[in-house]
Amino acid sequence: MAGNVETDSPEAGQVILRHGAITRITHWSWAVALFFLLLSGLQIFNAHPTLYIGEQSGFEFKNDIFSIRAMQDAQGRVEGVTTIFGAGFDTTGVLGVSGPDTAPSYRAFPAWATLPSYQDLATGRVIHFFFAWIFVVTFFVWLLSSLVNRHLRRDILPSSREIRTIPQSIREHLRFRFRHDGRYNVLQKLSYAGVLLILFPLIILTGLTMSPSMNAAWPWLLDIFGGRQTARTLHFVAMLLLVAFFVIHIVMVIAAGPINELRSILTGRYRVSGEMPGGEFRK
């Protein structure tokens, strides 16, 4: 954000420059990259739809904690079963078995959730690693510039004073009342910090931990994540958290005024509302 181009307490109705160019460019670079990474990642997952804890995959012992399978029940009906920590759930129609009843397809994630839509691990990997490079380069551009221009300190990391306002901010969010002074509130800061400084590095490093060459270069990766298969599981969990973030992100954009929010992330320009002006919390 570059809210201080104008003043820290803009007048209601005033249009400020909210997002700097790097914020906007990296946002959309990530958005595109993550879209393709997600759908190609689900394609890759489908090649072996089981997650394990440890260094290796237990075929003759048990260390799996999650799987999506097509299984035949006693009546001979094939159903999709998703198993989480030993508990099985019938997910027929979406996970395990999907597609039309006349021509069901036995695959973990359905055709509409993968790239390509058909089973093609090779192409899934090609897409995944291409966009992984874009994702990682974008991350370093963002990290470096945010350290240099103090975006990180000023806009992302909450101050200890702000931390104390978390309960108040939660109450405001529950009532869908938002400050529109162009600055992030404390819950926004925490979620952005969580995504940018925890989930992004986590998903990059767990991805690298699956690379046999990177295991030779940086064997400590295996130590910090507890083995290649645990890293694969954490990579999947980080994906789920990013999807959850995306859903909340979109809901909040809609709740906060989609036109103004979209304009600000496209052009940087953001209209400050008079609802809760001055950057102060309404008592």
Partner: peptide
């Protein structure tokens, strides 16, 4: 629309796929 919208661009010997594969 469903992800088969991109299948043509990603299949076999398409230029888009070849460009992405150069990341290898």
């Amino acid at each position: 629309a469903g992800c088969d919208a991109l299948d043509g661009l990603l299949s076999g010997d398409s230029a888009v796929r070849a460009t992405m594969a150069s990341a290898n």
